[in-house]
Design a protein around this nucleic acid. Sequence first.
DNA 1: TGGAATGTTCGGCT
DNA 2: AAGCCGAACATTCC
Length: 302
Amino acid sequence: MPELPEVETVVRSLRPQLLGRRITAVELPTRAMNGSSGNLLQRLLSGPPEVFQERLCGARVKGIRRYGKNIVMTLDRKGNLPAGSSLLIHLGMTGRLVFEHVPEPLRPHTHVIFSLDRSGCWLHFSDPRRFGKLRLMGNDFHELNRLGPDPMEISCDEFCRRLHSRCARLKSLLLDQRFLRGLGNIYADESLARARLHPAAIGARLSRRRSAALYQAIREVLAQAIALGGSSISSYVDAAGRAGWFQQAHQVYGRTGEPCFRCGAGIRRLVIASRSTHYCPRCQRAGRPQARETAARGRMAR
DNA sequence: TGGAATGTTCGGCT
DNA sequence: AAGCCGAACATTCC
């Protein structure tokens, strides 16, 4: 579920119900299910489940924000919680945070259920593949400090400087969270498609003009995706259970073999950085892109 | 049956 | 050093 637009959408939908609420209980439904579950839960919570429960009980949610693909909940000091603590949540590949009206699991792989005061609902965390993480942090943000700038905050000049200092392929760079925080496989492909750049093009070799085009494309794709509530490609929903609509605006992701909306050529798939990469072989040329505009227009008209 | 899936991290190689 | 690759993590879906 989770790239920058999806996480941003989840954060926004969490706020109304969660801001200012106190966590009154933390249930861990999968804890006692079988022998291996204990270890798996330990991994999910980055520590002993009991500590996670004890520390969080009684804490009040002061703030909720997104940092790359992470959700950061700042908590006020209550009971067992050290000062300046935050709950860091990464949704991994299939993690979901959804408000439900019952305190019992409604789906398999519901690992955490938060009870809240004065709300009449419970916050459920589920994650079939368990690539997600919930971890309590003190003031040590060193994990987050390793991440690169937010694509919506960085300036064009700074983006170009970073780009020109790297010899890696564009697709690899966009997936690298130390280069930019928040892009994943969908939005890397969609951004490159919008900028009409080949995914295997080398960052340091891009002209200033094309670098700026990539910068713009990333911001436009992300802004549009956020406006549409993210991409629901398998089961992603926000905290209110609503699906996103940006998957209907995808130009290349998941469209292998289908015609490019711009020129009609078949969308191709290749593997870069061990990830599936989708692009239009005509619009996204390695050398000189977009030479076929007139012919493309003619084809589209028919 | 095998492969792929919106992610991150690791070790090994060039 | 920088970049690349594959494996690992765990589960579901086609």
